[in-house]
Design a protein around this nucleic acid. Structure first.
Length: 866
RNA sequence: GCGAAAGUGGCGGAAUUGGUAGACGCACUGGAUUUAGGUUCCAGCGCCUUGCGGCGUGCGAGUUCGAGUCUCGCCUUUCGCACCA
């Protein structure tokens, strides 16, 4: 055996073996449990970054671990190939986006291959290829026919100098990134997907995803934002029309002192006619971009419309204001304002001198009054409590807390006085319903998904505009609508608009003159269904075929936490769309893993959810900041692989932090990983130098060898759990390192010792192989010539090796560690207590004081309380 | 502004169900090997203290025989906010 670890050589040999034996080709095998392991596909930006290396290593570790456990594993790879950066690069380098993208894909594919990933490359796909996006267009036309796609206007960022629509990312401090011009909101017609129709299912099904992180499910729940409230109609003074608002706090209705509408609200626009100051203000509100984070943090501005509505209960006149903090896209674009109990309304009312009327008081006050009535509380105490609470009023969080938590009671609210939240809500909703001025309503924060993009490098929206027939979907036989690839990008809008030879066409319905839609789809659309297409990657007759029913759902999905909401919600939505279009046929035909087999799994039946288990990976940082070109703190994976090999890169990434946490880059840590692999290689080489030997199969062992076998089989158990259930690869590696350290201390050349050493080394190589597959492939071949590691299977712990006669217990006195004792493994509480009390160290610390209590935690510790 | 997380030695992290805080690795220090550097190997390594011992998981309270872990309140950092992907 070669005495030195030569990564370049052994990694090339290992990859050659895997390729030639077609080791990772995934074949549908009914009856065999399948494991579909998917990492989020990369955007082909040019070259891999460390985040990719981390993501794909995590996926590969899980794929290889499950393969060794006997699963039929599918791990595919592809390219999220449409997107804005290609257009920017095209302008910079004067190369068409398509050419730039394909070039990047070729380079990055080579990089991925050098990582030694267990991928079935036959299933590779790129979303910019017509045979992929054809089916996206097909689904779009089906959804258009079902009414799940519709058209409406919506605001976008408009750069008035470049005369172009800007992405939020291209708006810096309210200005266009290239022109520097102040950005404006502009309404344009767009196609929308009716994701709100699935809001309730998307919310409910989260409960059937035990394999998803709670954090992600919570974020999605909040994003969907189901709230039960009341729609309230404020009649216009002297008109039959009403102004609709939605509120989750109908109990505060009697505290309303004004109503605020968005600048784009019809009432605002109406009022602006003949009111130049208001018109100017509305114009002012159009300035700036559409990003919500900016809208929510901007200074609160407003202006009275001069119009009034009537309070639906009291009939009192309530002024209507235009406010920039009210968003047209939410609910009705109008809110009832209760300055006494809402921080934003309060701030606004103070700024513009609007009245503040209390309608709720703290639950504590009601309790105090009840206590006075029953003689348990003094009038003086109440007065003090009132003063304390009034001091908090409007100045501290105290006031907001009991508003926010809905635990106050109504005051100054006429007939509703004394009612709590639920009582007031029900009473007010009932009264409004009687008057025909409102009712209870369920409202979602989630908005429909605008998918039109005024860009070139994307999937063409398959719609033909005909003067007589309107918007006509492209018929199936005419799909795909192919995006021309040889174009020039000049930054003045989509080149498609300048290609009459492309957009001029005939109407599929009437045959008359018509034009193609030149907008393309949001790239989130492509990434919402690629996971399903991998199963049917080469199907030319349909979007999906029977194979999708074998592989889906994805058993393990891995990707960055930044996708927790948008991508993952859109993909869940698309899964349900595909299901409802009938693409999955009936029930699953694949033998879905049992819960025990999988650890965590989806309890949802059939094809309701795309991803049974989700692992959200943390970021790769250097010097405490995200690695990025702009910060200039990137480390090139290529250089790392060339210097140390892929195994060192993989080992460092898996060892430095658990996958869900952020990972701090460390050059010294990489050295450490490399050193460990050298030690591992040397350990096997030194062992084999003394001659080949079979692994221990039973027989008498010294205490030292027994202890080593105990540690070995404990390590097998721990590592199996760390990979399969906990996904903490860092602790799995640490456990194998400890095992190797223990083996290194063994100074015994007896045949029994050599057998145990062989057993330890074989197991260590198998346990590490999902993380460092190349070196383990080579070492296994040395330990067991003529066999392949991939055929060896996952090691199993030997129960006989795990039997122990004595166990160690820690003894505390008053919670402080004072010593340790050894007790027979089946000793009872009383026996353990006796051993602990007889311990010299313990006696010293008790020092004659009375023992009040002894707590015995079996297998762990004894705590003596004095 | 809203939503979600995170905070433990000089550093990355471990402590899985409330039960020995600091596993494993890095850095550092001392020693061995080496012409030297590097490599490799051995030992030490939270802070304070001569010692006994005390203190210690962002800060402040609380629950408990026992809190890094649970509760409440703060501080700081990170992610997302619908046209970056």
């Amino acid at each position: 055996m070669q005495p030195h670890y030569l990564p370049a050589e052994i990694e090339q040999q290992a990859r050659k073996y895997w390729e030639e034996s077609r080791a990772f080709k995934a074949v549908e095998t009914p009856g065999k449990p399948k494991y579909y392991c998917l990492s989020m596909f990369p955007y082909p930006s040019g070259k891999l970054h460390m985040g990719h290396v981390r993501n794909y290593t995590i996926g590969d570790v899980l794929a290889r671990f499950h393969r060794m456990q006997g699963y039929n594993v599918l791990q595919p790879m592809g390219w999220d190939a449409f997107g804005l950066p290609a257009e920017n690069a095209a302008m910079q380098n004067n190369v068409p986006p398509a050419a730039w993208t394909y070039q990047n894909i070729d380079y990055m594919r080579g990089q991925l291959k050098s990582l030694g990933l267990a991928i079935d490359w036959d299933r590779e796909l790129a979303t910019c290829k017509p045979d992929y996006y054809k089916w996206e267009q097909w689904l779009f036309t089906k959804l258009f026919e079902k009414g799940m796609v519709y058209k409406k206007t919506a605001p976008v960022n408009w750069d008035p100098v470049d005369q172009t629509v800007l992405a939020n990312e291209q708006v810096i401090d309210g200005r266009g990134w290239r022109s520097g011009a102040l950005v404006e909101k502009r309404d344009i017609p767009m196609y929308f997907m009716r994701i709100t129709a699935y809001a309730d299912e998307l919310l409910r099904e989260l409960d059937n995803l035990p394999g998803w992180p709670e954090q992600v499910k919570t974020m999605q729940r909040n994003w969907i934002g189901k709230s039960e409230g009341v729609e309230i109609h404020f009649p216009y003074a002297g008109s039959a029309e009403v102004l609709k608002v939605f509120t989750t706090r109908p109990d505060t209705l009697m505290g309303v002192t004004y109503v605020a509408v968005a600048a784009e609200h019809p009432l605002a626009l109406d009022s602006a006619e003949g009111n130049p100051r208001l018109a100017a203000f509305i114009e002012e509100c159009k300035k700036g971009g559409v990003a919500e984070a900016d809208l929510a943090t901007q200074e609160k501005k407003g202006m009275a419309t001069g119009h009034f509505v009537l309070h639906p209960i009291t009939g009192e006149k309530v002024p209507v204001w235009v406010a920039n903090y009210v968003l047209m896209g939410y609910g009705e674009g109008a809110v009832m304002a209760v300055p006494a109990h809402d921080e934003r309304d309060f701030e606004f009312a103070k700024k513009f001198g609007l009245p503040i009327r209390q309608a709720i008081e703290a639950g504590e006050l009601k309790e105090a009054r009840n206590a006075i009535a029953s003689g348990n509380y003094s009038e003086k105490g109440l007065a003090q409590l009132e003063k304390v609470l009034s001091d908090f009023k409007f100045t501290s969080d105290r006031w907001q807390v009991w508003y926010g938590e809905k635990n106050g009671v109504c005051v100054h609210s006429g007939k509703y006085d004394g009612l709590n939240y639920e009582q007031a809500r029900d009473a007010i909703a009932a009264d409004l319903k009687t008057k025909g001025l409102g009712d209870k309503q369920v409202h979602y924060r989630l908005r429909d998904w605008g998918i039109s993009r005024q860009r070139y490098w994307g999937c063409p929206i398959p719609i033909i505009h005909c003067k007589t027939c309107g918007d006509v979907p492209v018929p199936e036989q005419d799909l795909p609508v192919v995006l021309p690839e040889d174009v020039k990008i000049d930054g003045t809008g989509s080149p498609l608009k300048k290609m009459p030879e492309w957009y001029r066409t005939a109407c599929p319905d009437c045959g008359g003159e018509a034009t193609r839609e030149t907008d393309t789809m949001d790239t989130f659309v492509e990434s919402s269904w690629y996971y399903a297409r991998y199963a049917s990657h080469d199907c030319a007759t349909a979007m999906l075929d029977q194979r999708a029913r074998y592989w889906l759902p994805v058993d393990q999905y891995i990707g960055g936490i930044e996708h927790a909401i948008l991508h993952l919600l859109y993909a869940r939505f698309f899964h349900k769309l595909m299901r409802d279009v009938g693409l999955f046929g009936g029930e699953a035909i694949s033998p879905t893993l049992s819960q025990e087999e999988r650890g965590q799994s989806s309890s949802s039946s059939g094809f309701n959810e795309p991803f049974a288990n989700l692992l959200t990976q943390g970021m790769v940082l250097k010097d405490g900041a995200k690695m990025s070109k702009s910060k200039g703190n990137t480390v090139d994976p290529q250089a790392l692989i060339e210097r140390y090999g892929a195994d060192t890169a993989r080992l460092f990434m898996m060892f430095a932090a658990p996958p869900e946490q952020s990972l701090e880059w460390s050059d010294a840590g990489v050295e450490g990983a490399f050193r460990f692999l050298k030690r591992l290689w040397k350990a096997v080489a030194d062992h084999l130098e003394k001659g080949a030997v079979a692994a221990f199969r039973g027989g008498h062992l010294s205490g030292e060898l027994k202890a080593l076998r105990f540690q070995l089989h404990q390590t097998i158990q721990k590592v199996t759990d760390d990979y399969g259930r906990r996904h903490t690869f860092n602790t799995a590696i640490a456990a194998v390192m400890e095992l190797m350290n223990a083996l290194g201390k063994l100074d015994d050349a007896s045949p029994a010792a050599r057998g145990v050493a062989q057993e330890v080394l074989e197991a260590a190589v198998l346990l590490l192989s999902p993380i460092v597959p190349h070196i383990c492939h080579a070492l296994w071949g040395e330990l067991n010539p003529g066999t392949s590691l991939l055929d060896a299977g996952w090691p199993k712990a030997d129960p006989a090796a795990l039997v122990q006669d004595e166990i160690e217990l820690v003894v505390q006195v008053n919670g402080k560690l004072r010593g340790s004792i050894s007790a027979p493994k089946d000793a009872g509480r009383v026996a353990i207590e006796k051993i602990a009390l007889n311990n010299d160290q313990v006696q010293k610390h008790i020092g004659g004081q009375t023992v009040k209590k002894v707590v015995v935690v079996p297998g762990r510790l004894v705590n003596i309380v004095i």
